[in-house]
């Protein structure tokens, strides 16, 4: 039995909710039990956005993630707010383009990915989120092309099919970072 609890956090507009949705959908494709819960309210207008995702072999109880196994922090306020919440032995993925400081805890694994810079350099400035997702999956040992493709097909609507390829490229870049 295994359960992974994710917390994604960043600015509104960074694709935080989408990143969470991707992970949830991938869980569904992989035949797991999943839940996705966004923060909601005024903060969705340009402030902080965050979402909790749980992927489990068993029925998900509370969908609220207070001690994430995986924290994806895409800006400094998110790291400041959630660093201490991460479960001991958990992982923190930080967008090092936007977060200059280092993680202070030593009981978690930390990955610094300059995702925002990489996204700009590669001509898809809106896909920093997917670069980080690529890194997350690769570190979890879940970077499986079939399931990723199936997930992308679910989360990207048919009329934006062209985006599929680009998203995959972004994720591969992240996986190799």
């Amino acid at each position: 039995m295994s359960t992974t609890k994710y917390l994604f956090s960043g600015f509104g507009g960074q694709g935080i909710l989408f990143a969470g949705k991707f992970i949830a959908y991938k869980g569904l494709i992989d035949d797991k039990q999943v839940s996705w819960l966004p923060s909601y309210g005024p903060e969705m207008r340009g402030g902080t956005a965050s979402c909790s995702v749980i992927v489990s072999d068993e029925a998900v109880g509370s969908p609220i993630v207070s001690a994430p196994d995986v924290l994806v922090a895409m800006n400094l306020p998110s790291l400041d707010k959630y660093e201490s919440a991460v479960a001991p032995g958990g992982m923190i993925f930080a967008d090092s383009t936007l977060i200059e400081r280092k993680v202070t805890r030593d009981d978690v694994k930390v990955f610094y990915v300059p995702a925002t810079a990489m996204a700009s350099e590669n001509g898809f400035p809106t896909l920093a989120n997917m670069i980080i997702i690529g890194k997350v999956l690769s570190e979890l040992g879940e970077f499986d092309a079939d399931s990723i493709n199936a997930t992308l097909a679910k989360v990207i609507s048919a009329k934006h099919a062209a985006m599929l390829e680009v998203n995959l490229k972004a994720m591969s870049l992240g996986a190799e970072a």
Partner: peptide, 10 residues
């Protein structure tokens, strides 16, 4: 409640 309304599940 707000959680049930906002959360996504299969």
């Amino acid at each position: 409640d707000g959680t049930m309304g906002q959360m996504m599940e299969p």
